[in-house]
Design a binder for these strands. Sequence first.
DNA 1: CAGTGAGCGAGCTTCCGCTTGACTT
Length: 804
Amino acid sequence: MPKNLVIVESPAKAKTIEKFLGNDYQVMSSFGHIRDLAEKGIGIDFENNYQPQYVVSTDKKKTVSDLKKACKESEVIWLASDEDREGEAIAWHLYEELKLKPGNTRRIVFHEITKEAILHAIENPRDIDIHLVDAQQARRVLDRIVGFELSPILWRKIRPSLSAGRVQSVAVRLIVEREREINQFSAEATYKVSAIFNSLDVNGKPIELKAELQQRFNTKAEALAFLEKCKDANFSVDSIITKPAKKSPAPPFTTSTLQQEAARKLGFSVSQTMQVAQRLYEAGKITYMRTDSVNLSDMALGTSKAEIISMAGEKYVQIRKFTTKSKGAQEAHEAIRPSYMNAHKVEGSSQEKRLYELIWKRTIASQMADAELEKTSIYINISGVNHQFIASGEVIVFDGFLKVYLESTDDETDAENDSLLPKMNKGEKLFPMEILAQQRFSQKPPRYAEASLVRKLEELGIGRPSTYAPTISTIQNRLYVEKGDREAEKRDYNLLKLKAGKITDQIKAENTGAEKSKLFPTDIGTVVTDFLTEYFPDVLNYNFTADVEKEFDNIADGEIKWTESIDKFYKKFHPIVEDTMKNSERQVGERILGVDPKSGRQLSVKIGKYGPLAQIGTVDEEEKPTFASLRRDQSIESITFEEALDLFKLPREAGQFEGKVMTIAIGRFGPYIRHDGTFYSLPKTDEPMDVTTERAIEIIEEKREVEKNRIIKILGENDEIQVLNGRFGPYFTCDKVNYKIPKGTDPLSLTHEKCLELIAAQPEAANKKKPFGRKAAAAPKAEKEKAPAKKKAPAKSTTTTKKK
DNA sequence: CAGTGAGCGAGCTTCCGCTTGACTT
């Protein structure tokens, strides 16, 4: 039996470390925190100086009893959890829960998993830092108080099962406020002038040169006046300026930057990235994937250097030590990097291969030389005009790290001026082929995508690497925000063109504003945010986390007791909770849009029990109000008077068919025609308002035709087996369960016996309930149906990878 | 599987951070 028991947080880490230590050591894992505040109630004893009530989590009971047993059989216990606030608390909880003795317990820490680092740690044990533990207790208790006191207010004032918290509520606020910025944005137009010139290079060879005017014009009149002047102007090269420039590689990956790059380059969602990274980690291919550190171990630096030399040569090496910039980073781990730099690729799924390759390239590039560029600008004089045209180009003199990897950006607007410019002489004359003055509009702020929201949260110091992905999921599960696409809008722009001495004036159309997989606030998200920001501005403040972090630091430094710190907060916070519960109104986000011209009654929109609705009339009037649901793409915040009024045009009658009325309406599953008790969905291409009697009949007949062809064959003694044509091809059904027909089998050839065989062969799994959603998300029915209606976006990468 | 918008006031929901596992389409 080994004399020493080492306890770490992660089982994969335990496995690795066990190999470094001899037979005298057994290494086990705690699987993170082993206990937490009691789940029932608030789990804090307010009568007793905020005493936390800790309980071993149900899924950790076995871990704890296993650890207890191992402790009894060991002489020395080494607590080797991470060296940050949470890690210190884990060590302390282990100490308490396992009833360890100071005499044979040691606390050790290491930042990298190498033999040297671990042996060094074993030689330098220390005590548990109780101040740091207290900072964690303060963090935990504060989060519980905020979450468990705010959420019930929302249940009472807005809707059951909602939630609020220090992190999630601010994340939603960011989305809501961005949407408002977009709604309030009005584009400003300027005229951008560009030209194509003919000229000669230094050797007298004819060349073509593209250039842009330094100045943009605010009005059409100015742009026209300029073009007029250009008609008779002379153009010549004023000066040529060449400047060297440098580009440096980005630091190695942290959780947040990995999520961003995987989204841009591979099209992964935040949670997808983490799942794939977890598999790579468990297979020993990469270091730990939840980290805020950009630091690389000396070992990794050494092997990176060796790789770069063998791949590209000595002059491509430039060893760098990056330091973290993000607020509140705790740096318990290394950056995310390959375990072995000499493995350029790994085996595995294509996702694993691609993510690994990204990590490998980013790591290698971070230790490579700067790229050297040469930026050239040719300034062109215009006789009689003060402004100048500039042709600019960029040439890579030495590629350096660009040989391997270039970080992507979110905006792909700057695609121009990457080209090599011809060599020209000063004073050379240029002749314009054409000069264009094009109306350009300022851009709306972009909506957040999952990964860019993570970046923003990290920038604000809100949330931790282990919670970014869960937070993004939570705010979507609560239906505060929705991932969606926005189609491009057509916009007209003005194009003035000077060619062959004549100016033409045209209106052209362009597409603008298309967005994919972005986060949109829902009406509920907006109402919750407005409510919380009004009553709890401190907690919703973007600096709240940063401020309490300072407080936690003071606790960790022993300057203030954690209970005093919490007391200070609670004494201020709790009275507001009580007051809000008692005195605030129910929140429905009502907006009054105007007066219905037909009835003269008030037209308003608000959140109803089943989602957002429009309403004509009010409840206090004698006549009951009439209601209509908002469409999926409409929101209380942005719907106009006319749009809301239009909603009442449905349901409408579309004439008769076979002596029965056809009614057109929009239901939970979209627009439909109802005829003689049956429903017929409208194809996406049909507008419910435009469907004529003839068209409605056509749709009904089409559906009947499909229905007729649906049944291929009926089998079984009581017709219990039906072979049918479905959306995805033929299948058969028995007892309300659908079964696949194996490829290559003609559905017509199926017999009763053959079907029974297939039923027996098919796994029982088909009857099982939904996948692992947390305890059947407690959302109202009407909104739960939204999810399946959404079509899945293809997993193709949406951003193009710019590479040299 | 389809148009709801409310009433006796049952009993429930919820936080953030550490870690993986066991489930499917």
